[in-house]
Design a protein around this nucleic acid. Structure first.
Lengths: 227, 227
DNA sequence: TAATTAAATTAGGGTTACCTAATTAAAAAA
DNA sequence: TTTTTTAATTAGGTAACCCTAATTTAATTA
């Protein structure tokens, strides 16, 4: 029996581990992420350990076991399918989909999920550019990397973002930067690593290194020299 | 703050009152309906009273207040919109939609509901023939009545069912009786009130009074003489 | 009406998911 | 290496929901 809360804890552990590459996820991180206090998290971690979904100790933090990862990836799958559906079929904006998908991801019906996935054309990536795991929990490959690693002169295409906050997504909208848009790195300021970019309508915009780290791109020419 | 459980209690009270016309709903009825025990129901009723969603006393049972009814009708609205959507847009069968809609009805997003409702063409009735309340909680009119009240010779059209159990819906499917199908009452057996019906492909079938009570029809000719 | 049956209620628990306030242990800084 | 700070843990508590086992109250039936 997995409740939606359990699903949320496992998803949180997956996403936190995924974000900062160091697979170890601390109770404090989870507590911040889920907006609860750490004793609450500890309590739940003990249950998840007992159920065999995670391992936990103070030094390595929480880690998903294969069965826990399977559940987490299934929720991620559902979330991203719903996001895509809301965006493509129901005309929700890039910034609106997340919140509704947070609810829809817990609807338990494989058949419904299959129909929705069919309807959106079985894509590999969601409207944020995030990969949609397949039913077996395998992620499609892509060589996305942060825009901040581009060199001067790089021509690349926006494939996603690694931050999904509304304020960040709105910032991108204001900058006229969207999914699948082409960007050219005109200049890199070596002092603060801010970038001067040319966007799709040939506008020139300035972007901080902080923002550039959250934008995932792919170079248009192979071996273009980017890090 | 209304949780999905609260929504379910209010919906149950609404539906039970709606079924048997006598608006009073007893704790025992609710307990059976929601598959919990009566002390659990009593406890929840006390909370709902405190929140102003219902009134309750031993003699009149539980009764929705206007604010409680508003919530209940909103859930009913969502449920029926989702059922219609699943049936019409995602090709689920008549018998499959209920269970999934039970989950989807608790998704909290007016905007999503609006889009889905648009998508199905803003109908007044769901695939079971049940009326979809509008946003203000008003129900569309219809003069549906049980088939069991038909007189011999009555020509009528199936507008809905008042029982949604899978076994009953499957029975109808086997009888080749579906929504919007025309029926002719060929004969009524006065011993047990069973009906001899002619269905859409001119088949003659026999139907018990019990089943006929659950089928909602409308006479094709006005003032045809049916009770 | 008295006896029986059924429904409503009260009493007393259990679990889950939260919390605050200590306390202990680890990490970072001085 | 002490001290300070931060993180993890333990202790103890609350609220929502659910339960079983009485008990009371109402409704039937004999």
């Amino acid at each position: 029996m997995k409740t939606y809360r359990e699903e949320n804890y496992l998803k949180a552990i997956y996403q936190l581990a995924d974000q900062d590459k160091h697979t170890s996820v601390s109770p404090t991180d989870i507590a911040h992420w889920l907006d609860v206090k750490s004793p609450t998290v500890l309590e739940k971690l003990a249950i998840l350990v007992k159920k065999g979904y995670i391992t936990y100790n103070k030094f390595d933090g929480a880690k998903l076991t294969p069965s826990g990862k399977e559940i987490a990836l299934n929720i991620v799958r559902r979330h991203r399918i719903w996001e895509t559906y809301l965006y493509k079929e129901l005309n929700f904006s890039w910034t609106e989909v997340h919140e509704i998908a947070e609810q829809l991801e817990h609807i338990n019906s494989d058949k419904l999920m299959d129909r929705i996935y069919d309807m959106i054309g079985k894509p590999d990536f969601d409207p944020h550019g995030d990969p949609i795991p397949n039913k077996q929990g395998r992620l499609p490959k892509s060589d996305r990397r942060p825009l901040s690693k581009s060199i001067k002169g790089c021509k690349c295409v926006v494939l996603g973002v690694s931050e999904h906050s509304e304020v960040f997504l709105n910032y991108l909208t204001e900058m006229h930067i969207g999914l699948n848009d082409k960007l050219i790195v005109e200049q890199i300021n070596s002092y603060d690593n801010s970038l001067k970019l040319s966007t799709k309508n040939k506008e020139i915009v300035l972007m901080s290194s902080k923002a550039a780290q959250q934008i995932l791109v792919q170079c248009i020419k192979p071996n273009c020299g980017c890090k």
